[in-house]
């Protein structure tokens, strides 16, 4: 591109991110070899899985943890730390 064809974009030409938390929509599911599976019957609502998820892929609701498989990278900390085996792991199919 010729220099004279470049246009000045004002604030849109400044390297800042003005949309907080927009990485939530980034899909990291392809990083996963295994996925966590939640079994409500075994859950004691202790919040350990929620607390220890490094990617905020587990939300906490009145009904307990809700796993967001877009953000989950499959680290399995939740499975390892769950004191009642309410979180188990399953192999990803592909």
């Amino acid at each position: 591109m010729r220099e004279e064809e470049l246009s000045y974009k004002g604030i849109h030409g400044i390297p800042v991110i003005l949309e907080p938390g927009n990485a939530a929509r980034v899909d990291r599911s392809s990083w996963r070899l295994v996925r966590p599976v939640y079994n409500k019957d075994k859950c004691t609502m202790c919040k350990i899985c929620y607390t220890y998820c490094p990617d905020s892929a587990i939300a906490w609701t009145k009904e307990g943890p809700v796993i967001n498989l877009t953000s989950c990278k499959g680290c399995m900390i939740c499975v390892e730390e769950c004191p009642t085996n309410a979180m188990t792991q399953e192999k990803e199919s592909s």
Partner: peptide
């Protein structure tokens, strides 16, 4: 809330042009 100074990928040239 603004994220100031994030790493960029392909946009580096664009910002230098700006």
């Amino acid at each position: 809330p603004v994220t100031v100074g994030p790493p960029v990928m392909d946009e580096y040239t664009d910002y230098k042009a700006q």
